[in-house]
């Protein structure tokens, strides 16, 4: 993603520009974390038969595709054989009318979720409100047998009783800090008001 595009995305919800202060993980760390999480997912679900991955827009989508590729690699499946969906939770958020909320990207769930194991994939788990919204959205698409949550970074400060099943890294943060996850690594930084 070009820098300008990333800045626009980072700045839109917060009204400022993300400035990185320290680098927590690099691209290889991400790959290793994804590999471990993939093994954990397979261990928990005794294989990948009933899995459907749903990447949360926008940060979780790339990770969901990377996670699917890793799972296919481990299980020696054909490429792109695992179903990967995308979900934008904007219309399910609980802060509509409190701050500007607008759907950013497409929701694409062309599969029947009934009695499947849905793994929600997101980049950062913070207050848990996005995941709450995602759970509501998923249930509108069907009745999965189980919903699990995989996140690259769990940064704490939960406001709802939600916990991740698979975590890339537990990262203690301050509330005002921001965590930026890309396939090239994880940065901890702050929002600079423009």
């Amino acid at each position: 993603m070009p820098v300008a595009e990333r800045e626009r995305r980072m700045s839109r919800p917060y009204g400022g520009v993300f400035v990185a202060r320290s680098r927590i993980m690099d691209g290889e760390d991400i790959t290793r974390a994804l590999r471990r999480m993939a093994h954990e997912i397979l261990e928990r679900n005794h294989g990948s038969q009933e899995l459907i991955l749903i990447g949360l827009q926008t940060g979780g989508v790339q990770l969901a595709h990377a996670l699917a590729a890793t799972l296919e690699d481990i299980e020696e499946l054909e490429q792109h054989s695992l179903p990967v969906c995308t979900l934008d939770v904007a219309l399910y958020r609980d802060d509509i009318g409190i701050r500007p909320v607008i759907p950013e990207e497409v929701t694409d769930i062309p599969f029947d979720l009934d009695s499947k194991v849905v793994v929600l994939v997101d980049d950062v788990l913070f207050t848990g409100r996005t995941i709450r919204a995602a759970l509501d959205a998923v249930i509108d698409f069907g009745r999965p047998r189980m919903v699990q949550l995989a996140v690259m970074v769990d940064r704490g400060h939960r406001e709802l009783p939600i916990r991740p099943d698979f975590v890339g890294k537990n990262l203690p943060t301050r509330r005002h800090e921001l965590v930026n996850v890309t396939m090239d690594g994880v940065e901890l930084g702050e929002l600079q008001k423009s």
Partner: peptide, 12 residues
């Protein structure tokens, strides 16, 4: 896309 869903309704 919402209109194509099994439940074409969102709580927004």
């Amino acid at each position: 896309e919402v209109g194509r869903r099994p439940i074409p309704k969102v709580p927004a």
